[in-house]
Write a protein that binds this DNA or RNA. Sequence first.
DNA 1: CCAAAAGTGTTAACAGTACACCCATGG
DNA 2: CCATGGGTGTACTGTTAACACTTTTGG
Lengths: 246, 246
Amino acid sequence: MSQPATHPVELEAIKRDQDYPRPAVAVDLVIFTILDADLKVLLIDRIGEPFAGQPALPGGFVRVKEPADADNVGDQGEDLEDAVLRELEEETGLPHGSVFFEQLRTYGKAGRDPRMRVFSVAHVALVRPDLAGLAAAGGDAKNARWVSVRHERPERLAFDHDTILDDALTYAQSRLDTSSIAFELVPPTFSMTELRSVHEVIRGEGLDRGNFRRRFLRMIDDGVVEQAPGKRITGRKPAAVYRFLR
Amino acid sequence: MSQPATHPVELEAIKRDQDYPRPAVAVDLVIFTILDADLKVLLIDRIGEPFAGQPALPGGFVRVKEPADADNVGDQGEDLEDAVLRELEEETGLPHGSVFFEQLRTYGKAGRDPRMRVFSVAHVALVRPDLAGLAAAGGDAKNARWVSVRHERPERLAFDHDTILDDALTYAQSRLDTSSIAFELVPPTFSMTELRSVHEVIRGEGLDRGNFRRRFLRMIDDGVVEQAPGKRITGRKPAAVYRFLR
DNA sequence: CCAAAAGTGTTAACAGTACACCCATGG
DNA sequence: CCATGGGTGTACTGTTAACACTTTTGG
């Protein structure tokens, strides 16, 4: 710290505010679902440059409005979260609120988008498998599709989306036991095996039935889940179904 | 999803890129240290409007350059991380690399800065107590100072910095047992009690000496720490000192 | 009746909790 | 010699992990 007596830091800051060029801020989405006991991510194909034709994570720019003036205080455009909700609906076709999401982190390396300076606030979204069929059905030019993360992941995604996808996967794994994200990947009522399958697919390894069952029973004791009426009839012995208590 | 046959999404994006106003991107820093067995955060006083004179977290805008043109491809300004390093040095006076930091999350509600649309990428930084004395010594206009998070926290911080500070504290607590952050808050060599004190101060509650010791011994077994030569002589019985193996 | 998945039990190892006790040191 | 904190032991409880057994169903 070697600042003269005046306020050079603040003067500098004011100068920056007015003179420096502005970046763009985008949201990128890592939208997971589970289909056929396999973890899938929603990918699109890029249409324009750069990376035209390459697979990429869906996303878009946050819609920002002009700085507030006297008679227009406070309208600075959409909230970051609203941008996510808007993009989620655009990409999946699913209604607001039916898709769970959390912020992952922000990627801000210079040059990550060659067109201009873009900060991307990445989010992880989870689509229940009973809704995933509805999503991404439209075969528009972007070719939105579910891709198996482990078995048909493309060589190379556009921008730094490979890194983002890796981080998202690590994030989901680390939050499996400390959050309720697993419940976002099962239907409203589910059997123990269905929930266990979610854990297995995200962790990428099998789990002991008996041990998972005891953890599950503790969740019932703790009031996290409760048994729901009915049974899941899936060819073999019918299983009890449960429901998550938000 | 109801897109006509052409590429309206991409056209829309191009239009936005050119026509929509741009936001600013800032980094805000929650800089923690431990002094006198008390968790401290570095606060400044705001100089200009808005919130002039109010305490706030230190931070500043990321320096962005004009979009690349033909002979200037790739110079889009500083990386997000570089902005953090620069601000950390400006605010603490400590050299690059001597302060640990991690990204917390991004705050992007419209109106959070009344001047203009600002996205703030908040970071948590940890200053070793043996360096904290050097930091923030200069009594410049911003009045940077260490403030006890639990005992002298101001009523109200500028912007949404109250939320950011709360989130940072929760983050530090949640990462105590699953990361090496505790080692960033002790000198290069430290006694068991010094490390335990870090845990206690961040968690806000006492820990059993014997139990902490056993966890510590496991860390030695796991090769996370090793004993260092010398003893810590602190008035009472000298304690063995250890060093963290990155 | 048989394969497959549901549902249950058993055991050893390990980790967390709450103590109690002795030891070394500086004042 | 005593208060303080370092260093150690221990008994209890809870959790994890591996695995074996029984039950219920559809084909």
